[in-house]
Amino acid sequence: MHAYSGRLALVGDRSPHVRSHSRIPGLLQALEEREHLDLDVYWVPTDEVDDALEAFDGIWLLPGSPYRSEAGAITAVRIARENGIPFLGTCAGLQHAMLEFARNVCGATGAQHAESTPDADDLLIVPMQCSLEGHEGAVQVRPGSRAAELLGVERSMERYHCAYGLDSSKLGPLREHGMVFSGYDDAGEPRIAELPEHPFYLASLFQPELAGDGRRPHPFIQAFAHAVAGRGDQIAETGRGAIPAAR
């Protein structure tokens, strides 16, 4: 058992109508039992995100958009990226992670999401030609990437529940600034993004929390949980900031 309990922030507006929100607690409990991890898990609504998130050892930006606060979701990603805090973004988590990177790293301050601003001039997140809500799809993984290392295969079937994706014609600046798109569908549309220079930064348009029957966590979630607990161990003796009261 780890000597220190890693603090994990689940950032999202918790709802019984979002399947992943009901699935994730059981997955994390299974990980704690199977992998001998010790995680303190806190739900943080997007409209309550602030600098207190810097005290966490991991940040998972969950599905469930439109968020109550787009700004809060993007702030959560920025805090994880700038502070080297392990980050996982799934579905809308990937979408908003790419908005954060485009705005704060690439200088594309006008980058927008079509779900919240459909008439904006600079849409980075756009409606898919075919919605993937409730569907499975193949993902081809780039060799040598973190995603490939974790999945252990070159092609994987993954479950989606989304209707928005990246405008692939606007990814050049993100790539130039270090974002790696390490997984694609059969049509060449990006499905996984990662930052190789970050301790753990991984985002997927698919929802790994929906894989299987919920008893065997997806490799992305397993690796993320280990990264969270590992960071907790490393800084167990240092001072920490305040954390949200609700759990």
Rank of each mutant, 00 (worst) to 15 (best):
H2R: 13
Y4D: 05
S5T: 10
G6Q: 06
G6E: 03
A9H: 11
R14P: 11
P16V: 07
V18S: 11
R19A: 12
S20C: 12
L27Y: 02
Q29R: 11
A30W: 03
L31I: 10
E35K: 13
D38C: 14
L39E: 04
L39W: 01
D40C: 00
V41Q: 06
V41C: 05
T46G: 07
D47E: 14
E48Y: 06
V49M: 09
V49Q: 11
V49N: 09
D57S: 01
D57V: 00
G58E: 02
L61S: 12
P63L: 02
P63H: 06
G64V: 04
P66K: 03
Y67P: 08
Y67T: 07
Y67V: 06
S69C: 03
A71E: 15
A71P: 03
A73F: 07
I74N: 13
T75K: 15
A76Y: 06
V77K: 09
V77Q: 10
R78Q: 15
I79H: 05
A80M: 05
R81E: 09
R81W: 07
E82W: 01
E82N: 09
N83V: 00
N83I: 00
L88F: 13
G89W: 02
T90V: 08
T90E: 11
G93S: 13
L94N: 14
L94H: 14
L94F: 14
L94Y: 14
A97R: 07
L99R: 12
L99W: 12
F101Y: 15
R103W: 08
N104I: 00
V105N: 07
G107L: 09
G110R: 15
A111C: 08
A111P: 13
H113I: 05
E115H: 10
T117W: 12
P118A: 04
D119P: 00
D119F: 05
A120F: 03
A120M: 06
L124M: 09
L124C: 08
I125P: 09
I125S: 09
P127F: 02
M128Q: 13
C130K: 11
H135Q: 15
G137P: 11
G137F: 07
A138E: 14
V139Q: 14
V139A: 15
Q140K: 14
Q140R: 15
V141G: 05
R142P: 03
L151W: 06
L151H: 05
V153F: 01
V153A: 11
Y160D: 01
Y164V: 01
Y164W: 09
G165N: 12
L166D: 08
P173V: 01
L174R: 05
L174T: 03
R175L: 04
H177F: 02
H177T: 08
M179K: 07
D185F: 08
P190F: 03
I192Q: 05
P196I: 03
P196G: 04
E197Y: 00
E197A: 10
H198Y: 00
Y201C: 13
L202A: 04
A203P: 08
S204V: 02
F206E: 07
F206H: 06
F206N: 04
F206Y: 15
E209H: 04
E209R: 04
L210Q: 07
G212L: 04
G212E: 05
D213H: 09
D213L: 08
R215F: 00
I221S: 02
Q222L: 13
A223I: 01
A225P: 10
A225Q: 10
V228T: 02
V228H: 01
Q234N: 13
T238F: 11
T238H: 10
T238I: 08
G239I: 03
G239L: 13
R240H: 14
P244C: 01
P244L: 07
